[in-house]
Design a protein around this nucleic acid. Sequence first.
RNA 1: GCGGCUGUAGCUCAGCGGAUUAGAGCAUCGGUCUACGGAACCGAGGGUCGGGGGUUCGAAUCCCUCCAGCCGCACCA
Length: 571
Amino acid sequence: MTSTYDLLRDRLRRAFDAIDEGADPVLRISERSDYQVNGVMALAKAQGVAPREMAARVLEHLEIDDLAEVEVAGPGFLNLTLTDSFLNAQLRALLGDDRLGVGLVEKRTVVIDYSAPNVAKEMHVGHLRSTVIGDSLARMYRFQGDRVIARNHVGDWGTPFGMLIEHLVDLGEDEAVASLSIGDLDGFYRGARAKFDADEGFKERSRSRVVALQGGDPETRRLWRMLVDESVKYFAEVYAALDVTLTPEDVTGESYYNDMLEAVVRDLDTAGLLVESGGALCVFPEGFVNREGEPLPLIVRKSDEGFGYAATDLAAVRDRVDHLHADEILYVVGAPQGQHFDMVFAVARAAGWLLDSVRCVHVAFGNVLGPDRKMFASRSGETIKLIDLLDEARERALSALRQRSLDVAPEARERLATQIARAAIKYADLSTDRQRDYVFDLDRMIAFEGDTGPYLQYAHARLRSIFRRLDAPWDGADVTFDLAESAERTLALGLLHFPEALDGALATLQPHRLSGYLFDLAQRFTTFYEACPVLSAPEPTRTQRLALCELCARTLSLGLSLLGIEAPDQM
RNA sequence: GCGGCUGUAGCUCAGCGGAUUAGAGCAUCGGUCUACGGAACCGAGGGUCGGGGGUUCGAAUCCCUCCAGCCGCACCA
């Protein structure tokens, strides 16, 4: 089906095109009517015509009577009120559409770089946002019909691996694997670090181990592989606990690009972009300066001849363009790295590796803050394990569930608690502008009241409970939506807005556009639910209301799934 | 110093060119109530949208400037 928004916009565009080819009608959801058209004023200004006069001209060209009544309002807005027959037709189409009005785009390849934990290091709150936001974007892109290639840019290379491998050797392989597989990655890392700082001999061994690793010594590589594999296994557990779609196959760590780094340097040199400065090989992209106002380098090869992350990131861009054939590349990485990515993209474009046709975006996000508005950490100042955070949320959800007389088996209750805990944490992250910092407050995010994940899950569960109470199957095949009650009409309009909400989230790479919509829809539903009895209503009202409930449940469920949140039938 | 992000009700946040009363959630206060699940709903109070200029018929929204906070600015990612 074609979405309501698209149908209206197409008609409006035709009228606008007749006056000025390509002019944007600026169609928006309105508080004063169903939709409003804001584009008349801009058009009037461009053409030197009085706005209301322009509105009249647009109306002359506008053929939209079958969809909406139009009224000129204020300085020159067009207010649209959908006709009953159009509303009915759209709702009926929605009932038969699994995609709830969302069209499929022409399939492109979208690479999304997200999560990026470090080998032999715990996943902590610092990884939460990248993981949750990236996964939501991946789900939305997939749903829209694109081919998504997730890239988990795991930190699996660099000098710390000398000490980590030596520590592994000291512990013995079996012991080390056991310690890693119980998920005590920080313990392992700290053990290595402590010895490195205290023991000169260990430090020396670590250094030569790095050399052996870089030199490709088979035994060293085997031990390194072991560390990586165990960590990736652990990450998979965390992703499962979070219900994140990343798999071990998506892991292309820093080491993945090692063999491409020489070529990066060589080709930059060939392109005449490479400059030696202080012993390091650099590119000075235009427009970047340091403290002193001097050109700022992107250091591709360090003065010790090692490669930095800039080289890896450049190699990754090339790989994603040349081998993955990306049409679009997204980096879901914290805001502090903004300048670094600006420089990498600038260099990649200057080198001709990244064409203008490939959209490359740093999807930046702010920090997770503690109640003191500082970086979220435990009392003792340590970072908090992601898995501990989830466990605590699950405990709270569980105790809340116990206080309810919900007729479910203990195992089912455990499962529910897990679903609620994930919803609480993910929704809190996905329901604010991602560029801002946000305060992590478990009490607020896990509450069943307010703008929370559990509230939306609850709204969905209430809807499903209606259908459980049905004594006989209902059939919506011949339903007619007359929407006589205003609460019915308000809910119905909300259902039609789903495609715009998703488009908005994708266009801005802001999942909170979608979460905000879902919360609004849930509120429309609860208002409707209070005002309009469903099961006890006489026919044909009963069938109509059941159909609205069905659509609402499906919209909530689908919408939440695109945020990576499950919608249980009962809670 | 340069650059980026942020500053909207007591708190947490939407809104980021558009319309007379700037929205929501939480908290507060007041209602609804023997219920199609009350973990709900309805209502009220509460804001000079950081300050000041400017553009415009119209600015929380665009431009300039100032203030405050956070972050980045050469070999760690």
